[in-house]
């Protein structure tokens, strides 16, 4: 009777040599849900995304999308199940224009005419990059590249969108715009958003999952999580110092 969750992981683990990057994670996301994923540097958030997209294979445990296990599927096959990702370090076709990047994303699942339409509407209306449409993405600033990648993911029209630090490197106004955009996208797609900025989290989140050392530390509504002692501890104890140096 009940629909299976959109994503469900069971005892999901991966280790690199001796390092448990993701450890026994049981995670589940309903259709249409917007979940925030937080945790100190090195907690395993990006690695978790890589497991969901098939870039890494788990050491043990399973991932199911729409009730279907993705074990053995290639990255592109998982993408075709409707999973889109904005990676931590924007990953774009650097020597192609903004429009070509977004068009390529739309073209995969749509006819040429529909892809043209989607590309135009994403560029003009959704991410507002009209003035850069014909600029090579390599020439854009980090902040703009973040937006381009958001546009690329949106144009894919996925059921599930993974955003790895979408607001990193953005200032107040842009951050607000990003938060608005995320809420708007959420009307049609379920999302998991990794962010470090608490203000940003408060603005968008309902449920928050906290990762620490590859494990789920807490999972609850945003106010409970932010008030949680353990969360404060892992964050205050660790967030200083290390830079974000890993990207998908």
């Amino acid at each position: 009777m009940m629909n299976p969750p959109l994503v469900e992981t069971r005892e999901l683990s991966v280790h690199f040599g001796g390092l448990q990057a993701v450890n026994n994670v049981n995670f589940s996301l309903r259709d249409g849900e917007l979940r925030c994923l937080i945790g100190p540097n090195g907690a395993g958030k990006t690695t978790f995304f890589r497991l969901l997209t098939g870039v890494h294979a788990p050491t043990s445990g399973t991932v199911a999308v729409n009730g279907r296990s993705i074990a053995g599927l290639q990255t592109h096959q998982i993408a075709r199940l409707g999973v889109g990702i904005k990676t931590q370090i924007p990953s774009l076709f650097d020597n192609l224009s903004v429009r070509e990047n977004i068009w390529l994303s739309a073209r995969r699942n749509h006819s040429r005419a529909a892809a043209n339409r989607i590309a135009d509407s994403v560029i003009m209306d959704e991410v507002g990059l009209g003035e850069y449409a014909n600029t090579e993405t390599a020439k854009l600033s980090h902040g703009l590249r973040q937006w381009v990648e958001l546009g690329v993911v949106i144009a894919q029209r996925p059921k599930l969108i993974l955003l790895d630090e979408p607001a990193a490197g953005m200032t107040g106004h842009d951050m607000e715009k990003t938060a608005e955009l995320i809420k708007r996208i959420n009307r049609t797609s379920a999302m998991i958003v990794v962010e470090h900025d608490m203000e940003f989290i408060k603005r968008i989140a309902k449920t928050v999952t906290v990762f620490n050392r590859g494990e789920v530390l807490v999972e609850s509504d945003v106010d409970t999580v932010l008030a949680d002692e353990r969360v404060r501890e892992v964050y205050l104890g660790k967030q200083t110092g290390r830079q974000h140096d890993t990207g998908a």
């Binding site: 592109h76 073209r107 995969r108």
Partner: peptide
Amino acid sequence: DFGRVVIAIKENEVRAELLGYDA
């Protein structure tokens, strides 16, 4: 369109696969 995808894969294979193209 085929050629655009071929070039895109050359530019960034992982990205192309994350979009669902079988590189």
